[in-house]
């Protein structure tokens, strides 16, 4: 990776997901590339879900960060060129999700079945004695679970292929 591109990635590690403020966009795995137009970076993002309403906010946050870092005319765009899947979340990102109280998604091998969704460790007490209540949650990327060990309801970040 070019030095100046690496520097952009480093910069974007400080731009946090608007709905999960512990994880950066880089660790979430949605920054898919940086192209250069002379001195101006063009950052490419990919959506976690097609219908994710936070996407426009993320584009704006990245744009503001680049402007504030001295780039006169940065560009940010979103495309499906690289399709996001939950394996693209970094190790640091998985830990950040847990810190926010969300069970991180298990790594998948390209397909998801119901039993994968039911075998989730509680982010509060780490017990696997949990049950999935529903694969749909308060945002598209979350499912809802219950821990039979510590008796807390919790949310998980969904594995997506």
């Amino acid at each position: 990776m070019e030095n100046r591109t690496a520097a952009i990635y480093q910069l974007l590690e400080t731009v946090m997901d608007p709905e999960i403020p512990t994880i950066s966009l880089v660790d979430l795995g949605i920054v898919t590339g940086v192209e250069w137009d002379d001195e101006n970076p063009h950052v490419k993002l990919t959506p976690t879900f097609s219908g994710c309403p936070a996407l426009r906010v993320m584009e704006q946050l990245v744009h503001e960060k680049l402007k504030a870092s001295g780039f006169d005319n940065p560009k940010v765009s979103t495309s499906f060129e690289v399709a996001w899947n939950s394996n693209m979340i970094s190790e640091k990102g998985l830990a950040a999700l847990k810190k926010h109280g969300l069970a991180p998604p298990p790594k998948h091998a390209g397909y998801i079945e119901l039993d994968v969704l039911s075998d989730i460790a509680c982010p509060l007490c780490d017990s696997r004695n949990t049950t999935m209540q529903t694969p749909f949650g308060p945002t598209l990327c979350r499912s809802m679970h219950y821990c039979k060990n510590c008796h807390n309801a919790f949310e998980a970040f969904k594995p997506v292929t």
Partner: peptide
């Protein structure tokens, strides 16, 4: 490209 993206989403619908 979009079809590859939709796959993971639709999986939850059929399940």
């Amino acid at each position: 490209m979009v079809s590859r993206k939709f796959r993971g989403e639709i999986k939850y619908h059929t399940m």
